[in-house]
Design a binder for these strands. Structure first.
Lengths: 403, 403
DNA sequence: TTTCTTTGTTTAGCAACTGAAGAATCTCCG
DNA sequence: CGGAGATTCTTCAGTTGCTAAACAAAGAAA
């Protein structure tokens, strides 16, 4: 009855592949309903995907009164991708299959002070080890995604060193794409991945499409203002989320409290990395230390306020908490955010905001980096938009009016 | 040299028309460069637009060594649109031409307490008067856009009463579309229209495409949190922008100051409408009243912080201040916002955020309402996306595995 | 069996675009 | 003045990617 609307994806092939992935298992008729394409088109496209080995027929559904539907599934082990996350002095590597599932994973302390060439050489070695560790054919590895807070610089070198196509991105955006690809959120969902590592950032997906912003800087939620007269931030403003509630702020507050610092076993100021101390505080809170818990809950209140502001601005449907710090302390933050969004999200009358903890928060940015590779290699040639300058440039400067 | 990328607009015709509008004056070759289409396609599409009377050849450019380019322009007076803005007890009507320029405008005090049927009948009368006042042929009026804070309800009735197709939208979104259509910002710009009427909202355009959000509630910046321990807001949260800095808050603060209230000639609490008193405060500030100015600047600091948060989250290029309240007090707010974004916008190293006051802030939502009509009627049939539910619904619930 | 329902494939046809050839119009230069 | 070259614009055959509709295949109901 209801006329299916046309899907406005880049290409039909990619849209269909995406639907198969998102659905997990689906029939051709299911694809017709979900895509708005006709049976004929789906038939042809699916045959192509099967020929390429990306999709396989995996059985039959029960009959609904006629011929049984042939079920299709992503051929998860047809291709692989490598994802690398450079965090604060830690490098996480994952090898994922087409479905975004982790096939192999290693994590090494990062070398903050080494020169770039050495880092690249070392990363290439460790990527080789990662791929070899599960005996995956290198021809089936589509590429390598490299992400960090504010995307990294040495992509071309790494491309040469590994022989794999390299894509770069920001870690929060990667985490969002990873969530999207792994299918936890709907294919056309509008959501943000709130990613807390050493800083706080958000990856944004609007109606199923990643939003990076014209300067690639979208999702800069770490400097959301939560107190116009608050403490100054290196960014030039006052009362930014990171300064009030970021992991570094929480750790600093805990270190300032002598007895808490001793009880939780914190390092001295400057000695231990922030991540280690943040983990120690979280551990203390879980073991019943009220002071530690209070600090985390205070941070959570700020994060919740920023999350609500973001959800209100973008009319979000889902908010996923991810990244190393939420992997450690997510269970403390989650209820606070849920409560805040249930109580005061403006559009809650229209639809709720579902707040979740990523099932693989610690390696989510790395998994997302791999997902970006999957997306960029399987969705052929993303169509870029023109730069506004070119418009003017195409026109000679002088006109001669007439009528 | 540089291969032009394909424009991913809904239809080519609309994309070309939009380029003509955005450029003001452009040749076919200019369109080829700007759109990435071939000369042949442009030739055909432009002929169609000329046949429909939407575009006209208006002269020649100087030669660049060969045949001179024939310049094309939007035929501004080929079609018209009506825009209606229902604000707090005030209705603004505009009739615009294809370029979004106002051809006729009337503004009437709104009847807050009348029943809907009477309001519709009255609006239909006033729209008729608007169109007749400039003697425009009704066949050339494409439709009517009706906007208010949180879109209005009686579209169908108004459609019957006026005989014009009616589109509804939220006032801030309309204002953003109006700015976009009038060409002040680039065709593919990422920007927000900060719209202050009785409340505060933002209309969001990302890369040239209007973003409304899955529930149509995007841009809810009025409830951005600027103080987690601030005064409570009807929305359920604390420290929301509107409560701290909205026109109603400014007026309340001014009324609480007896001598200021007397000096500025404010109405008693509840007696005068907020808009009138806000205007009175702004007038007092302009005439040198330090207390009034301090109140407005305090409000501006909050608005600036919220604007910065939004700009950081979305990586905005432009921020336009618009709506009735900014029409009155924009000159006080503008420098505060500029300073804040110059100082602390995260991506300022990549690109600046340009902050401007809309040249027609008072009627911007109404003009935008008309622009929505232009867009929806000239860009044939916007392609909706599928609802996520339909995907699951297309699949029978029980599977039978096989291999 | 026969008949009906549902799924999936094939085919012709259409709409929109590209690519390449050609016509038109201008400048420049001998 | 009259080519030669440059540039703009048009025309048209050919490709692509889709739809609509007929058809074939597989099962349920009778």
């Amino acid at each position: 009855m209801s006329r299916p609307a046309r899907v406005t994806h880049a290409s039909t092939r990619a849209a269909v592949l995406d639907l198969v992935r998102a659905a997990g298992m689906i029939s051709r008729v299911g694809l017709v309903n979900a895509s708005g394409l006709t049976g004929g088109t789906i038939s042809t496209v699916v045959r192509g995907l099967i020929d390429e080995g990306l999709v396989a027929e995996t059985g039959h559904a029960e009959s609904t009164g006629g011929k049984r539907r042939v079920m299709l599934q992503l051929n998860h082990f047809a291709r692989y991708a490598v994802g690398v996350h450079l965090d604060d002095a830690r490098i996480t590597y994952v090898l994922t299959n087409l479905g975004g599932a982790v096939v192999a994973r290693i994590s090494r302390p990062g070398s903050a002070s080494e020169d770039p060439a050495a880092v690249v050489a070392r990363m290439a070695r460790e990527v080789d080890a990662l791929i070899d560790s599960v005996g995956v054919d290198r021809d089936r590895v589509l590429g390598l995604g490299l992400v960090s807070a504010g995307s990294p610089g040495f992509g071309e070198d790494l491309e040469r060193a590994t022989g794999l196509p390299v894509v770069l991105d920001d870690d929060a955006t990667a985490a969002a794409i990873g969530e999207h690809w792994s299918g936890g959120v709907g294919a056309t969902a509008t959501f943000a991945a709130l990613c807390m590592g050493s800083g706080i950032g958000a990856g944004i997906v609007l109606g199923g499409t990643t939003y990076r912003g014209p300067g690639g800087q979208a999702g800069g939620i770490g400097h959301a203002c939560l107190d116009v007269d608050g403490p100054p931030c290196p960014c030039g403003a006052r009362g930014c989320l990171e300064v009030l509630a970021g992991p570094a702020a929480v750790v600093a507050q805990a270190r300032a409290n002598r007895s808490l610092a001793r009880a939780a076993g914190l390092g001295r100021k400057g000695s231990a990395p922030v991540a280690a101390d943040f983990a120690a505080i979280s551990r203390a809170a879980r073991q019943g230390d009220g002071r530690a818990l209070a600090l985390l809950e205070r941070s959570a209140r700020y994060v919740a306020a920023a999350a609500r502001t973001l959800a209100n601005a973008l009319d979000l449907e889902v908010l996923v908490l991810t990244g190393p710090s939420f992997a450690i302390a997510g269970s403390t933050y989650l209820p606070v955010l849920r409560e805040e969004l249930d109580r005061a999200f403006i559009a809650r009358g229209v639809h709720p905001v579902s707040v979740r903890l990523s099932p693989s928060a610690a390696s989510a940015p790395a998994i997302g980096a791999a997902a970006i590779v999957l997306q960029s290699e399987l969705v052929p040639r993303s169509q870029g938009l023109r730069l506004p300058d070119d418009l003017a440039a195409g026109e000679p400067p002088v006109f001669q009016h007439a009528r």
